[in-house]
């Protein structure tokens, strides 16, 4: 469907190289410093503790769930923003981006106002059924989804806007229904963007701190994810905090490195 052309390797313009090196150094140096401070000898003991394994499990599960929910709602939202015209669309897009610019603790407070025990929707739900999002894994997932969903929507919308509409038109001309066109033509065409968006979304959810602690609280084994555990470890035991951070980095790299090529294919 898309024509892939392998281009000959080119030498970059000379002026770009030093700037690229500076940018890369700036990004990499803090991680080198972290490695240099790492308590290598006690690393095994630190990472085997229940506090760490609980936090790692909660982080991975909640980030995956948030990514799943984001795909479910985010792809349709991106399609609506990219392919339909309606009054106030620019405003809706700005609202979708708000969680990216809002300080996460404010996002967490806003979630509390909406879904907390005294919240807009939360109060009737709690009074009627006893259902309570905060202080639970569902609350962590909700906070993660709130901050991570925009990353998926933005990426997929950009993919949809740059995709060649003629394939969709051709499918329609050949009698495909709108749903079939979406499923068999549009979705495969923007698949790289969907993958890229999902990865960004997952990475953002994995590192989420402010909204999670404000909305869902912090309790080992129930709501304490890796970033929360790292933050608290910094208060008492810097070695443990660094060990936890390195584990979080390792998990992220394990996902980001293999996906790099698919991502770049977008």
């Amino acid at each position: 469907m898309t024509v892939r052309r392998r281009r000959a390797r080119t030498r970059p313009p000379a002026a770009l190289v030093p700037l690229a090196v500076i940018a890369l150094t700036f990004l990499v140096l803090p991680f080198v410093a972290l490695l240099q401070r790492a308590p290598w000898s006690s690393m095994g003991d630190l990472l085997g503790e229940p506090l760490v394994t609980d936090a790692l499990r909660l982080s991975v599960v909640s980030a995956l769930a948030a990514t799943g929910l984001s795909l479910l709602g985010g792809v349709p939202l991106a399609w609506v923003l990219a392919r339909t015209e309606f009054p106030g669309r620019a405003f809706v897009r700005a609202v979708v981006l708000l969680p990216m610019v809002l300080p996460p603790v404010v996002g967490g407070a806003a979630l509390l106002f909406a879904f907390g025990r005294r919240g807009l929707v939360g109060a009737p739900a709690y009074d009627g059924t006893g259902l309570l999002l905060p202080y639970s894994l569902a609350g962590v997932i909700a906070a993660n989804t709130f901050v991570a969903l925009p990353f998926l929507v933005v990426t997929v919308e950009a993919g949809l806007r740059t995709a060649d509409r003629r394939y969709e038109d051709a499918a329609a001309t050949l009698g495909a229904s709108r749903w079939t066109t979406f499923r068999r033509v549009t979705l495969p065409m923007v698949a790289p963007s969907v993958v890229a968006g999902a990865v960004l979304c997952w990475a953002r959810a994995l590192g989420e701190f402010g909204a999670t602690v404000t909305f869902a609280g912090n309790l080992q084994g129930r709501t304490q994810t890796m970033p929360l555990a790292v933050f608290l470890a910094l208060e008492s035991d810097r070695d443990a905090a660094i060990a936890l951070s390195l584990l979080l980095i390792a998990v992220s790299l394990a996902v980001l490195v293999p996906l790099r090529d698919r991502w770049l294919a977008a």
Partner: peptide
């Protein structure tokens, strides 16, 4: 139900009735 990272965030949740 939660062990807050600082005293002010704990106060915040109580003040909000959460």
């Amino acid at each position: 139900d939660t062990e807050e990272p600082d005293v002010r965030s704990l106060l915040t949740k109580v003040a909000a009735g959460e």
